[in-house]
């Protein structure tokens, strides 16, 4: 019975992120449109886009290899697994101990590795430009991410997300400067990893300014649907990660019963919606930066992570 309820909770979690991810992107787009005094498409538009893409035929380049065709599935699966392992509405999920924060980051790395390879597969200039810039951004984001992990692990004594969330949700933590720095750093990393403004522009098709979109330029039909869906999931994953690490209040403790799960889920959706609103606000207020300004932007995240860690060495309560 316990096992069944465990599996049920884990299954609901996987299904929840699966269903919620396009909605978040649709919501962000809607808010952005309203901020620009446009009416904007419905928040359900990403679902419709995905269905439309799924029904279309795949237009494949003559020299595309099996790797190009396998990548959408591998990428999506890796991101989905990673997203399912981040606690959303409840901690202590069945498979939480499979992967800690470092593994989740590395799973996203696997997804990116294959996507960057697929960008090189057809041999067009756009794929190359996208891949080479993507790996540069990743190379800058990963050290910053490790320092964030380090900082959080110093406070909570664990890299296991459930443990961290439980620890921070408990009242003993209070406000901490170092966690604040880690949070800002994580937001910067999340913006870069999700190809958002100011690092990349998800809406543009102006070729020379794009990174992620250039890499997947050759994809179409169901393959493109998988990749887009993967990107939606990744955005939700990072939002969930920020929420789970720094604002875990309201998250249901494992085994707390169905009612608290429902409350946890409601609070989670509210938090994600608020984060989506902030993201839209930030993107509307900021301009995209030149590619070679990105190192400075991500360097700030690195330094914040390092500073947060050092502050913790100075005093455990900072």
């Amino acid at each position: 019975m316990v096992v069944i309820s465990d599996i049920l909770v884990q299954g609901i979690q996987m299904l929840l992120v699966f269903l919620l991810a396009p909605l978040l992107t649709g919501f962000v787009r809607k808010v952005k449109a309203r901020l620009l005094r446009r009416r904007g498409p419905s928040v359900l538009q990403p679902y419709r886009d995905l269905l439309r893409l799924l029904r279309k035929e795949v237009v494949l380049a003559d020299n595309a290899s099996w790797l190009f065709r396998a990548t959408p599935y591998v990428t999506f699966a890796a991101i989905w697994v990673a997203a399912a392992l981040v606690p959303t509405f409840a901690t202590g999920l069945l498979f939480n101990w499979t992967a800690d924060l470092i593994v989740i980051v590395a799973l996203l790395g696997t997804a990116r590795f294959f996507l960057a390879l697929a960008g090189m597969d057809v041999g067009t200039a756009f794929g190359g430009i996208g891949s080479s810039r993507e790996v540069m951004i990743a190379a800058l984001a990963e050290p910053a991410m490790l320092l964030i992990v380090f900082c959080v692990a110093l406070v909570a004594g664990s890299t296991q997300l459930s443990t961290v969330a439980n620890f921070i949700a408990s009242s003993q933590t209070g406000l901490r400067v170092s966690l604040g720095m880690a949070m800002i750093a994580l937001v910067i990393v999340a913006l870069a990893e999700n190809a958002r403004i100011p690092v990349d522009n998800p809406a543009t098709h102006l070729e020379l300014t794009m990174v992620h979109e250039a890499m997947i330029l050759e994809y179409s039909g169901r393959h493109l649907a998988m990749i887009e869906f993967g990107a939606f999931l990744k955005l939700l994953l990072y939002v969930s990660l920020i929420v789970c690490l720094f604002f875990p209040w309201g998250i249901a403790i494992f085994g707390a019963g169905p009612l608290s799960y429902v409350v946890g889920a409601g609070v989670y959706v509210l938090k994600v919606g608020f984060a989506g609103f902030l993201l839209a606000l930030f993107e509307t207020a900021t301009a995209k930066m030149r590619v070679f300004r990105v190192p400075q932007f991500l360097g700030a995240a690195l330094m914040l992570g390092l500073l947060g860690t050092l502050l913790l060495f100075v005093s455990k309560s900072l």
């Binding site: 795949v58 237009v59 494949l60 003559d62 057809v122």
Partner: peptide
């Protein structure tokens, strides 16, 4: 990945058209 693959091959389009690269 295989669930996804199965679902897509059961419900979505199977068609593939080979063309010169788009770029």
């Amino acid at each position: 990945a295989s669930l996804l693959f199965g679902a897509i091959y059961a419900y979505a389009s199977h068609a593939v058209r080979r063309v010169p690269a788009w770029g």
